[in-house]
Write a protein that binds this DNA or RNA. Sequence first.
DNA 1: AATGCAGCCATTTTT
DNA 2: TGGCTGCATT
Length: 735
Amino acid sequence: MELILNKFFYLEKLNDKQKEAVEALDGPVLVLAGAGTGKTRVLTTRLAHLLNKKLSMPWEILAVTFTNKAANEMKERVQNLLKIDIDRMWIGTFHSTGLKILRRHSELCSLKSDFTVIDTDDQQRLIKQILESNKIDIKKYTPSNVLWMVQWFKDKAILPEESSKYKFKFGRSINISKLYIEYQERLKTLNAADFGDLLLLPVRIFRENLDILKKYQNQFKYILVDEYQDTDTCQDTFLKLLSQKYKNICCVGDDDQAIYSWRGADVKNILSFPEAYKEVKIIRLEQNYRSTDHILAAASKLIEKNKDRLGKTLWTNSSNGEKIKLYFFEDGKDEAKNVSLEIETLKLKKLKLDEIAILVRASFQTRLFEDRLLKIGIPYRVIGGFRFYERLEIRDAIAYFRIVFKNSDDLALERVFNTPKRGLGNTTLQKLFKYARESKMNLLDASKKIIETDELTLNARNSIKTFIDDINKWKSKINKINHIELAKIILEESGYTRMWINDKSIEAPGRLENLKELISALKDFSNMNEFLEHISLVMENERNYKLDMVNIMTMHAAKGLEFENVFLAGWDEGLFPHQKSLEEKGTQALEEERRLAYVAITRGKKNVFISFAKRRFIHGTWNFSQPSRFLSELPKENIDTNESFFQDDDDLVVNEEEYGSRVKNPNRLLFQNKKDLVENINSYESEYKFKIGDTIFHEKYGYGKIKYIIDGKYEIIFDKLNETKIVLENFIKHA
DNA sequence: AATGCAGCCATTTTT
DNA sequence: TGGCTGCATT
């Protein structure tokens, strides 16, 4: 008896509803999991239960998520529950699952199995080329507009040949369908697929090859989907095709947390799931384990204002929590200052900074908070925004790797053909591209051929020759030395590292630092192909999560996270709900914004602070606004307003004199004399003679460059905030 | 080919 | 305000 109990030990940790969701293994199941109701626990336990009851083998289960983070967490937690070979299970993101399938059958879409996955940047460049060759005015129809339309088709699972039926209001005079077809043709010739293709092409393969579809339908006896409310039509179609046979599909989601409609997600998928499958079992998880009573009550009352929802009522056992604190400020700076003061109080109480988050609606809002925290020396990280692999230098380096390690990669070659400068100007490159296109060759082969003709100037021919020889030399080393060494050699010999060493701009040191980090990231992979495959799908920057820092991010980026203390800044009408979204989609958008507010509030475990500022300096002008309508939708009994707590004067916590004072621009510092400067930087000896243009490292402000030396005073321009963050991290690491 | 300046734009963003 | 793009100048 005890043995049997032990066998399903994991069930004991669940509440009744959770247990029900885990044990309803057969047939379609919809789990409506409110915020903080133990959704991930249910998902992982369900996986373990399926395996444990021997209902299926590991490879017969498909579990899909949206982010790598979620997929990894799922893998880890299943692994902790059961000792099984996790690698044989199909746990992954929609895109990595699609990719895995597409690699096996790519020839059915005229792609070789080693096709490259291109990112948005490459997509844009491709579209631009197509627009230009069609003589379309790229001012009127920008590549990103057209890309958006192409993506719209792909989200809706509309193939190029079907796309002519659809008309866009915008761009009526261009034949978007023709462009879509041409774009897809170009991808084929480049042996490449974009992110949308990773799902669209498998759908096409399934539709056109019933034998293959059947094979996968038979394989996947059980399907699990996380964050189902975020699926777009293509993803939903993918799932419906696969689940047709066994219909053992379990979708977990929360319609109240659907905040990605602008990205193609369609709430209808979750709302109409019961109609799409017969005899759906619907299970609601409503017991919240995350937030205290007031926070939960406020969030619930707010979301009740929405009409379009399946309906849930969250409840909690936890009582006597703090009320939500509501603050009104004069302007954005005032808001940032007082939020940071509150953070300092929390810090004095020895609360972890990791457990503090500042959530905003639009990313420009992070700036003031960054400024402020930088100034008073509270470490922070900005989540989202620019990601590591999207940085210019990283993309360049990866392009080099792609050229050497992949058979032909025109987009990569195009990117770094003249980086560093090889004396190849626009005219040369244009001629080369034209030559390649006309002779239907890839760029590398075309380059080899063209230097035997006299199409180009002698100088151009010579430098292309040198470059090609280099590439061949690197290629010949692939099997001789390990990929990490070879990567270093490529960056050295191509002159790429040198280029940044010689570059005296403010960014250069940071960029070199990033390149080093890229090399060290290679160590986690046994070969370059593995690495390239990984980075084409993973864009996560995990470098700084170990340090104790305040988290700053958008409300969107906060979904799925939780913090003890949450600051919700900028609840001004116009900013949140955002004017633009209301203009675009009216009531529907308002409901989505309200869901965003709901997501934001439910991130908080113990304290939620919400603030409003009367005026803000946005894009060079002062904007005045009213408090967000969402504030009035929060029940009075769950809210506390206490303005008197805050200081009204402009006192700074840090004595500015100590670090040099800020001049006009927030990244400019004026040092009164050399001593003042030397004492605050650590990269030079005191004997060093500073000159204009020198890069210096300041403990608080990071990398800066000397702009002027006047009357013995030194004015330093500090790096853009983006780059400074890294420096700050390093600084904290050393400290 | 490199630099500098005018003009444009500014919601949310993973894979 | 500030960051990026594209065109014009040297």
